[in-house]
Nucleic acid binder design. Structure first.
Length: 1128
RNA sequence: GGGCUUGUAGCUCAGGUGGUUAGAGCGCUACACUGAUAAUGUAGAGGUCCGUGGUUCGAGUCCACGCAGGCCCA
C-alpha cells in the first residue's frame, strides 16, 4: 500500500464532509465512548441550548471549547459520556410565540387558552432543532444527540419537583416578598423586559424633600454630640423624590468610605437652631459661602443668608449604628409595627453616592429594591401593617393608596392612579401634604419641585411603584458560607471570573427568587389552602396521584385531570385544574407561579437521569462534573444554579473545572447582531473554510475567555500557514516514501541513538512539545496548546527539519540514514496528528488515516480519536542538542544576512565563515552542527577564532539586574564607567576575575558576574552580531569556487527544465549543451559528476550545434541545451 | 452607578517574580532562493506600551486616579 498523494490545494471543507461521513458510517463517536468502557469516567455536562432560534458563530466557539477537552480526555483513555440536552422553557419562547400570534400576556386565557398557548410554545421550542443538529455534526462537536434530556418532558419536570421537595423538606423553600416594579393602575407586576420598552421613562416634576431625622443621644452617637459646640439637636439629612415613602422609613444608609460633616445652622422654616449631618462634598449645595462667615448669634427669621459652621468630620462607618427618632410615630397617629425596636438605625449601603441628595439615603424596605436588600443584610425590619384579614402588608395597598391606619393621610392616593381631578387651586398631592406637615414639624430642611425621569407602566402610562410582591424563594443565604467555601475548590478559567464576578456575587448573595408569573415552564408543585395555613409540596407524580385520590374521596374533585401515558402533561393549565385536600379537609389550590427556568438547567445533573426518582447509581457515577464550559454571561445563570443546587442537595461542587468563555464579536470588535448585518453565518463559514481551520483559528487567536474578534481573513491565514504547511509536510513525506516503497514499522524503526543529529534534534523538540501540550490541555488552556503545536509544525518541523533534510529524502537508495529520516518524519506527523486531534478533529483524522494507509505491520487503531495519546519519551530530550541547533539556526541566519550585504547569492559557494568563541563549550557545540551550517549557507568550513588569535575586539555590557541590586542609586555611575572600559581592562577582568575601577571619586570592585563580555568586531571583516554571537564571512572567490557556482547554477536551470518538461522525479535524462562558452565548459568539466548526479543525467555532452532545444540563461551565460529522456 | 474584564506596530497577539535597545505572525517595501514553490530566506519601514500622577537608581510590568471598549448587575 502507498501513502495517498493529493493535488494542491487541498479542499478542507471537503475533508470535513468526507471524514464526517466516515465517522458516521463507522460509528466512531459511539466507539470513542464504548471502547473506554471500564476506564475512569471523565464527567462532562452539556449546558443545554435553546433551539427556538438559529445557532450563530458564537455557538461554534463555545462548542469547540467544550469538545476539545472531552476529546482530549478520551485520548488519555478516559470514558467521556456526553449526553446532549435542550432548554425548552423560558421567556424568550413565550415572547416569540406572542409576537407570532400578535398577542400580549393579557390576552392569554382570553383570546387564547393557556392550553393552546402552551401547545404553541411546545411546537416553537424545537423549531430549529434540525439546524442545530446539523451544525453540531458539521463542526465536529461530539455529543449524544440521540438521547438528549429535554426540560419540558414529564420526567424532567418530575425530577425538578423531587428536588424542590427535598429543598422544601430542608426548610429551604419559603414564600416571601421582593420589591418588583408594579403598576397599581393595571394591578400587575412588570418584568424588566416590559420596563425596558421604549417610552416608559418620562420626565416628571415631583415634590422632593430633604428630611431631617433626629439623632438619639446615646453611646453610638456620642461622637456627634461631642463635636457639637452647643445643645442644638442633631439631625441626619436625607433626600427623597418620593416623600410618600418617608412614612415607611425604617433606616438610613451611608457610604462606608464617604466623608460626612456635622454642621451647626438653623432650620429655614422654623428657624430653630439645629445641627445637621451630610456628606462633606455636598455642603456647598445647601449652604452658601457667605453663610460660613455670617454670625450665628445675629440670625433672625427671614434672613436671606443661612449662617452655618462646620463642627466635625466623620467617615460613614463612624455613623453606623446610630439611632434616630421615627418621622411619623405612633404619637402622631401612625401605626405600630413588628420589629420596631430594631428599626431607625444608620446602616451601610453600597449604592450610596455623593452624586445628589445629601450622601445619606432614606431606606424604606417595602418600596425599593436596594432598600430591601440593604435592610435585609443589616436586619432592619420593614414597616408592615395588617389588612382587614390580618395579613401583613405595606402601607400602600395594591390599588396605590395609603392603608386606613395611616392616620391623617389614610386612604390618600400616593400617585394619581384613579385619574381624579388635580386642577383645583387648593388641591394638594399626598407628597405636598407630607411636605407641609414636615415643614411645620421642623423635620424638613428643604422642599422643592424637581424634574427627573421616572418609569411608567407601558399600558396605563401611570407611574410605576416599586412594591413588595409575593414570591417563592430558595433560601440560598442559609448555605452562603458553604457556597463560598466550595467555590474556592473550583478551578475557574479564567481565575478572575471565579474570584471576582462569581465570588462577589456569592458574597452579596440574596435568596433565589423562584417565582415567575408565566405560562410555559415548570409549575411550582405547591398546593395551599385559601388562608395559607396548610400546604403541601409534591415531589413525584406518584405522590400527586395519591393526593388526587384523597381529594376525589373528599369530593373536592370529581375525577383526576392528570393525563396518562403520552397524555401526561405536568404543565399549566392541567396542573391548575388539580385541587387537593388538606389534612383538615380544606381544599388546596396550586400556587400559580412557575419556577425560574434557571432552576431547570441547574437541575440537569439530576434531572437528565430522572434522578432522584430512579437511576441513583448512574447519577452517582456522573456527579459532580469534571468539566463544564459556557459563556461568561452564565456566571449568575447556569454556573450559579448548578453550584447552588449541588451545595444544597449534595453538599458538593457541581463541577471541578469550568471555562467561562467570552463573546464572539465582529472583526471591528462590535457585537454581532442581525439588525447591524454583521452577524457571521456559521454554516457559510464552515462551508468556506472547513471545520478545522475555523476551530483552530478560534482557539489559536485568543484564549477562550477573551472576546474573539472574528475576522475571516484570520481563518484564511490559519488555513495557509498552519494547515497548508502541515499538508505540504505530509505530501513531501508521502511522495518520497512512496518512491522508496517505504512504510513505517515501529518494530524495525532505526533506534533513536543511531539517527542523525537533525533527527535527534527534532525528536527532542517533539518530546518537549508533547510535555508542553499535555500540560496546557491539563490546565484547560487550549490556546497555548494550539500555539505550541503550530510553532512546532511551521518553524521547527517544516522550516528547519524538512528543509535541511530534503536531500536525505530524495538522494539514492533506501539506506539506514534515509530510513531514519522517514522514521523521524513519520513519528513527528503521527504525534502532531494526535496532539491536534482535540482542536482540529477532521484534519487530524485525515492525516492519521493517510499515515495508516501504507502501514502493513502492527495493530491499526481505527481512528485517531480511538488512539491513546503517546507519552513523551523524556529520555530523548537533549537540552544540549536543542541549544546547539539554535546556535546553528542563528549562525545561519547571520550568514544569510552577510551574504545579502555582500550580494553573494547562496548558490555561490564560499570558503568559510569565522565564528569567534570565548569558551570551549561553545566551540564544541557549534562544531557538532558545523555540517548543517555549511550545507544551509553553502560554505566549505566553519572556522573558530579564540583569544589567541589576537584579532578579537571585545565589548562589555553591564549586567544591570545584578548591579542594581548591589549598588542601588549608584548604578548609573557604575554602569557608565563599565561602558567606558578599555580593552586592557576587559582583558584584566577576564584574567583575574575582578577589576578595581574608580568612578566619580569612588572605588568599585567589579567581578566577571557584573558584566557580560562579548565579541563585537573583527577588524577588516564584514561581521554580523546577534547578542553574544558574532559571525564573519570570508568573501574571497577562488577559481574553483567560481566554477562550482557555475555548476550549481547549471544544475538549477536543468532541474527547472526537467520540471517544465513534465518529467517525473525518477526519470533519467541525457543532456547536450552548446560549447561556445569556454568558462562554462571548464566548469562543467570540473564538476561533471556533481551535475550528472544532481540532475540524474546519464550523459552530459557538448556539441557545437544544439538544435531544437531551449536556451539556459544565467549570470552572463546563454547556453543552448537539449534534454532527452533516457530510455534505459 | 457598582462588579469583573480588555487596552502593546496598520491587523491579530506574546511579553514569570521591575533591569536600561519592547518582540512574533500577518500585511507593506526591496532583494534573494527555487525538485515542498499559492512555499521559503534576508533586510527595511512601522510604537506616546490608553492617559495622568506616584513608588523606585530604574516602570509595558507595581500603586492611585482617570479615559475608552466589552460583559454582568442595579
Amino acid at each position: 500500500m502507498k501513502y495517498p498523494e493529493f493535488k494542491q490545494p487541498l479542499n478542507y471543507a471537503q475533508v470535513g464532509t468526507d471524514i464526517l461521513k466516515w465517522w458516521q458510517e463507522n460509528g466512531i463517536f459511539e466507539k470513542s465512548v464504548s471502547s473506554r468502557e471500564g476506564q475512569p469516567t471523565f464527567v462532562f455536562y452539556e449546558g443545554p441550548p435553546s433551539a427556538n432560534g438559529a445557532p450563530g458563530i458564537h455557538h461554534v466557539m463555545a462548542r469547540t471549547v467544550k469538545d476539545i477537552f472531552c476529546r482530549y480526555q478520551t485520548l488519555l483513555g478516559k470514558q467521556v459520556p456526553r449526553k446532549g440536552g435542550w432548554d425548552t422553557h423560558g421567556l424568550p419562547i413565550e415572547l416569540q410565540v406572542e409576537k407570532e400570534l400578535g398577542i400580549t400576556k393579557e390576552d392569554i386565557g382570553k383570546k387564547i387558552s393557556i392550553e393552546d398557548y402552551n401547545q404553541r410554545c411546545r411546537e416553537t421550542v424545537m423549531r430549529f432543532k434540525a439546524q442545530w443538529d446539523d451544525l453540531t455534526q458539521k463542526m465536529g462537536y461530539w455529543v449524544d444527540l440521540d438521547d438528549p434530556y429535554i426540560t419540558f418532558k414529564p420526567e424532567y419536570i418530575e425530577s425538578c419537583w423531587a428536588l424542590l421537595k427535598k429543598l422544601y423538606d430542608k426548610g429551604l423553600l419559603y414564600k416571601g416578598y421582593t420589591i418588583q416594579p408594579y403598576s397599581p393602575a393595571a394591578g400587575t407586576g412588570l418584568s424588566s423586559h416590559e420596563l425596558n420598552q421604549p417610552g416608559t421613562y418620562h420626565d416628571v416634576k415631583d415634590t422632593t424633600i430633604v428630611a431631617q431625622f433626629k439623632v438619639t443621644r446615646e453611646e453610638a452617637s456620642e461622637k456627634l454630640f461631642a463635636a457639637a459646640t452647643d445643645e442644638a439637636p442633631v439631625y441626619i439629612m436625607a433626600w427623597t423624590t418620593t416623600p410618600w415613602t418617608l412614612a415607611a422609613n425604617t433606616g438610613l444608609a451611608v457610604g462606608k468610605n464617604i466623608r460626612y460633616v456635622l454642621v451647626r445652622t438653623f432650620n429655614p422654616y422654623t428657624h430653630a437652631p439645629i445641627h445637621v449631618v451630610l456628606a462633606k462634598d455636598l455642603v456647598s449645595r445647601y449652604f452658601s459661602e457667605k453663610g460660613a462667615t455670617t454670625s450665628l448669634e445675629e440670625y433672625q427669621a427671614g434672613d436671606k443668608v443661612l449662617p452655618w459652621r462646620l463642627e466635625g468630620e466623620f467617615v460613614g462607618s463612624d455613623l453606623v449604628g446610630i439611632h434616630y427618632e421615627r418621622l411619623f410615630g405612633q404619637d402622631q397617629g401612625f401605626p405600630a409595627f413588628e420589629g420596631e425596636e430594631r428599626a431607625f438605625r444608620v446602616i451601610v449601603g453600597d449604592f450610596v453616592t455623593t452624586e445628589d441628595g445629601t450622601g445619606i439615603v432614606h431606606i424604606s424596605p417595602t418600596f425599593g429594591a436596594d432598600d430591601f436588600r440593604a435592610a435585609q443584610l443589616a436586619d432592619i425590619p420593614a414597616l408592615l401593617v395588617p389588612d382587614a384579614d390580618g395579613k401583613l402588608g405595606p402601607i400602600v395597598d395594591r390599588t396605590g393608596r395609603y392603608v386606613p391606619q395611616m392616620g391623617e393621610f389614610g386612604g390618600r392616593w400616593v400617585k394619581n392612579y384613579d385619574g381624579h381631578d388635580q386642577s383645583g387651586a387648593d388641591y394638594k398631592t399626598l407628597d405636598e401634604s407630607i411636605a407641609i406637615k414636615m415643614r411645620k414639624a421642623g423635620t424638613a430642611f428643604k422642599t422643592e419641585k424637581y424634574e427627573h425621569t421616572y418609569p411608567h407602566c407601558w399600558r396605563t402610562d401611570k407611574p410605576v411603584l416599586y412594591y413588595p410582591l409575593d414570591s417563592w424563594f430558595i433560601k440560598t443565604t442559609a448555605v452562603k458560607d458553604r457556597l463560598i467555601e466550595l467555590n474556592k475548590t473550583i478551578n475557574w478559567k479564567p481565575e478572575s471570573t471565579g474570584t471576582g464576578r462569581f465570588g462577589n456575587w456569592l458574597e452579596n448573595l440574596v435568596d433565589w427568587n423562584l417565582s415567575r408569573s408565566r405560562y410555559w415552564g415548570t409549575p411550582l408543585p405547591i398546593w395551599r389552602t385559601q388562608d395559607g395555613t396548610e400546604e403541601i409540596c409534591i415531589g413525584s407524580i406518584a405522590e400527586l396521584k395519591v393526593e388526587i385520590e384523597k381529594a376525589i374521596a373528599a369530593e373536592i374533585m370529581t375525577h383526576s385531570p392528570l393525563g396518562e401515558g403520552d397524555k401526561l402533561d405536568l404543565h399549566r393549565p392541567y396542573v391548575d385544574d388539580i385541587f387537593l385536600v388538606s389534612p383538615s379537609g380544606q381544599p388546596m389550590y396550586r400556587e400559580t407561579d412557575l419556577i425560574d427556568v434557571w432552576f431547570d438547567s441547574g437541575a440537569m445533573p439530576y434531572a437528565q437521569w430522572h434522578y432522584p426518582i430512579e437511576n441513583a447509581e448512574k447519577f452517582q457515577k456522573n456527579f459532580p462534573a469534571d468539566y463544564i464550559a459556557e459563556g461568561v454571561d452564565q456566571t449568575r445563570g447556569w454556573f450559579f444554579t448548578l453550584h447552588a443546587l449541588a451545595v444544597m442537595l449534595e453538599d458538593s461542587v457541581a463541577y471541578k473545572n469550568v471555562i467561562a468563555n467570552g463573546l464572539v464579536l465582529d472583526k471591528n470588535g462590535e457585537k454581532m447582531s442581525k439588525s447591524k448585518g454583521n452577524a457571521v453565518d456559521p454554516f457559510a463559514t464552515l462551508a468556506q473554510f472547513g471545520p478545522d481551520a475555523t476551530r483552530w483559528y478560534m482557539i489559536v487567536n485568543a484564549p477562550p475567555w477573551d472576546n474573539l474578534k472574528f475576522d475571516p481573513t484570520g481563518v484564511t491565514e490559519v488555513q495557509r500557514r498552519f494547515f497548508g504547511t502541515l499538508f505540504n509536510t505530509y505530501s513531501f513525506y508521502a511522495l518520497y516514501a512512496n518512491l522508496d516503497e517505504y512504510s513505517y514499522d515501529a518494530a524495525s524503526a532505526v533506534p533513536a541513538a543511531e539517527r542523525s543529529e537533525l533527527d535527534r534534534w527534532v525528536l527532542s523538540k517533539l518530546q518537549s512539545l508533547l510535555l508542553e501540550v499535555r500540560g496546557h490541555y491539563d490546565s484547560y488552556d487550549p490556546t497555548k496548546a494550539a500555539r505550541a503545536i503550530q510553532d512546532f509544525v511551521t518553524d521547527q518541523l517544516s522550516n528547519w527539519y524538512v528543509r535541511l533534510s530534503r536531500r536525505r529524502f530524495w538522494k539514492g537508495e533506501l539506506t539506514a540514514d534515509k530510513r531514519a529520516a522517514f522514521d523521524t518524519l513519520y513519528e513527528c506527523l503521527y504525534a502532531v496528528g494526535q496532539l491536534m486531534a482535540p482542536i482540529a478533529p477532521f484534519f487530524a483524522e485525515w492525516l492519521y488515516q493517510n499515515l495508516m494507509e501504507a502501514q502493513t505491520t502492527g495493530e491499526k487503531v481505527e481512528s485517531v480519536h480511538l488512539t491513546l495519546l503517546q507519552e513523551a519519551r523524556t529520555e530523548l530530550i537533549d537540552a544540549a542538542l536543542e541549544e546547539r541547533m539554535e546556535l546553528a539556526q542563528r549562525i545561519s541566519s547571520l550568514t544569510h544576512s552577510l551574504r545579502k550585504k555582500s550580494v553573494l547569492k547562496v548558490r555561490q559557494p564560499l570558503q568559510r565563515i569565522l565564528v569567534p568563541v570565548l569558551n570551549e563549550s561553545t566551540r564544541e557545540q557549534v562544531g557538532k552542527v558545523e555540517d548543517l551550517i555549511c550545507a544551509e549557507v553553502n560554505v566549505k568550513h566553519v572556522e573558530f577564532l579564540d583569544d589567541t588569535s589576537g584579532v578579537l575586539v571585545k565589548s562589555v555590557k553591564p549586567n544591570f539586574k545584578r548591579l542594581g541590586q548591589q549598588y542601588g542609586p549608584k548604578l548609573k555611575v557604575v554602569g557608565a564607567r563599565i561602558q567606558q572600559m578599555t580593552p586592557e581592562e576587559i582583558t584584566q577582568l577576564e584574567k583575574l576575575g575582578s577589576l578595581s575601577v574608580e568612578a566619580e571619586g569612588e572605588a568599585y570592585t567589579l567581578t566577571t558576574d557584573d558584566v557580560e563580555i562579548r565579541t563585537q568586531d573583527l577588524p577588516g571583516w564584514l561581521v554580523a552580531t546577534d547578542g553574544p554571537l558574532t559571525v564573519a564571512l570570508d568573501v574571497t572567490l577562488t577559481e574553483e569556487l567560481r566554477q562550482e557556482g557555475v555548476a550549481r547554477e547549471l544544475v538549477n536551470r536543468l532541474q527547472n527544465l526537467r520540471k517544465d518538461s513534465g518529467l517525473e522525479v525518477q526519470d533519467k535524462i541525457r543532456v547536450t549543451l552548446g560549447n561556445q562558452q569556454p568558462e562554462l565548459t571548464a566548469a562543467v568539466q570540473s564538476f561533471g559528476d556533481y551535475i550528472r548526479t544532481e540532475t540524474q543525467a546519464l550523459a552530459l555532452d557538448f556539441a557545437a550545434d544544439v538544435n531544437g532545444g531551449a536556451v539556459l540563461e544565467f549570470d552572463d551565460y546563454n547556453v543552448p541545451v537539449r534534454l532527452e529522456v533516457a530510455t534505459s
